[in-house]
Simulated scan of single mutants.
Amino acid sequence: MRVVIASRIFSPEPAAASFRLASLANALTERGDQVTVMTTTSRSGERPATRPNVTIRRFPVLRDRDGYVRGYLQYLSFDIPLFFRLLFERRPDVFVSEPPPTTGVVVRVVSALTRVPYVYYAADVWSDAAESTGAPRFVVRVLRLVEAHVLRHAKRVIAVSDGVARRVDELSGARHSVVVPNGIDTTIFSPGSSSPRSAPTVIYAGTTSEWQGADIFVRAMPEVRKRIPGARLIFLGQGSAWESLEALAEQLAPGAVEFRGVVSPDRAAATLRSARVAAVSLKPGQGYDFAIPTKIFAAVACGTPVLFTGPGPAADIIEGAGLGLAVNYEVATVADALTTMLRDRTWDPGNLAEWAEKNASLATAGRRAAQVVSDAGAGAT
Rank of each mutant, 00 (worst) to 15 (best):
L87P: 04
V106K: 01
V331P: 05
R367G: 07
A370E: 07
A360K: 01
L82V: 08
R343Q: 14
E13F: 13
H176I: 09
V160N: 01
F189T: 01
S127K: 05
K283Q: 14
R43C: 09
G206H: 12
E250V: 04
D316Q: 15
P92H: 11
G104K: 00
G324W: 01
T40D: 07
F297G: 00
D79L: 04
G71F: 03
V280W: 03
E131S: 10
T271R: 06
L362S: 12
A279Y: 05
Q34I: 10
V334M: 07
S195Y: 00
V180N: 12
F217A: 15
T208H: 05
A15H: 07
S127D: 03
A154C: 12
I317W: 13
L87G: 05
R152D: 00
R367D: 09
L171D: 00
A17S: 15
A335S: 14
N182L: 14
R63C: 07
L151R: 00
P284W: 02
R90E: 15
V119D: 09
G310L: 06
T29Y: 08
L342Y: 14
N53S: 15
R219F: 04
D266C: 04
G206C: 13
T39I: 15
R137W: 02
P265V: 10
I184F: 04
V178A: 06
A335I: 07
F235S: 06
S23N: 05
Y121A: 01
L362M: 11
E330A: 12
F259D: 05
A199C: 00
M341Y: 14
N182K: 10
E13H: 14
A205M: 09
A268L: 08
G322K: 01
R108N: 04
N26M: 06
G134A: 09
Q34L: 10
P60R: 15
V263P: 08
V119N: 03
F59P: 01
G377T: 13
L145E: 13
A369M: 13
F189L: 12
D124F: 06
G287H: 03
P349V: 10
T29G: 08
